[in-house]
């Protein structure tokens, strides 16, 4: 009879499954779940739905301006991060970087900014600038440096060296090489990743207010603290709207340009 796996395969397969199961069980035990909460969960969910529906549509007037502020934060954060990440990506790209130590410097900045969430950056910037949109802009910008910097430096590393040589051969200096040899090759990817990051940043900007960094999150936080659930529904719906809207724009642009 034909079998897909021989004996050794089977030992390995069941061994892996057992180890996986053991990790799962240990993890579950570590979390110390309070099962009493689970017993009341269905009641709580019912209660939540009961309070949240119908949404308070009159609340729209109050949330309009924080919603616009959220969009502004996302634009400013993205714009700022683009300005900073272009030179960092240039330094971090193996093939064009002026010096190898700068490659490590660039890659270090990229990993550090990338590994910490925007909301944690927001905690830090709220301490610096106080609550408000400014802290949010900086949080988005710093987190985005890692994202755009990483993708952009990878795009630069993958360029075709021949146009660069051609521009050098005509007597072009470093700036000419950058403008005519490198930029045209990475432009589609660059526009694609910037729009994509802006799209992500809108989503992030909606929650930064939870730690005081401005935008719709501030209103959401206060509505939850006041247990004003019909207002929470309105806020969530408005977030849904702008997220779908920005995702539409970003998807359209990326499709058109054919970048990332």
């Amino acid at each position: 009879m034909w079998n897909r796996f021989d004996k050794r395969d089977n030992i390995r397969r069941y061994g892996t499954a057992l180890v996986g199961l053991a990790i799962l069980i240990v993890s579950w035990r570590v979390m110390n779940v309070n099962y009493e909460y689970l017993l009341t969960a269905h009641y709580e969910i019912y209660d939540l739905l009961y309070r949240m529906v119908p949404p308070d549509l009159g609340y729209v007037n109050e949330i309009a301006s924080p919603l616009i502020e959220t969009i502004h934060m996302s634009i400013m954060g993205t714009a700022l991060s683009i300005i900073v990440s272009v030179p960092i990506a240039y330094l971090a790209a193996n093939n064009v970087s002026p010096h190898w130590t700068l490659v490590y410097f660039g890659k270090f900045i990229i990993s550090v900014t990338r590994s910490i969430s925007a909301i944690i950056w927001a905690l830090i910037f709220v301490v610096m600038f106080g609550p408000g949109a400014l802290a949010g802009i900086f949080a988005l910008a710093v987190r985005s440096i890692g994202f755009i910097g990483k993708l952009l430096s990878e795009a630069i590393e993958e360029i075709d060296p021949i146009p660069v040589e051609a521009v050098t051969a005509t007597g072009g200096n470093k700036i000419d090489v950058f403008v005519y040899g490198i930029v045209p090759q990475i432009k589609p990817a660059f526009i694609g990743m910037s729009t994509y990051r802006w799209d992500i940043n809108i989503r992030q900007a909606t929650v930064l207010g939870l730690v005081g960094a401005g935008g719709i999150g501030l209103v959401l936080d206060s509505a939850i603290t006041r247990l004003y659930w019909p207002g929470v529904t309105t806020i969530l719906l408005s977030i849904l709207l702008i997220v779908i809207f920005s995702e539409g724009i970003s998807a359209y642009l990326r499709k058109k340009i054919g970048g990332v």
């Binding site: 709580e44 909606t206 929650v207 939870l210 959401l220 939850i224 977030i239 997220v243 779908i244």
Partner: peptide
């Protein structure tokens, strides 16, 4: 669509 933190608020309540 929703950021994990927003969903988390709802599930913390639940």
């Amino acid at each position: 669509t929703f950021h994990p933190l927003i969903l988390a608020i709802v599930f913390v309540k639940a």
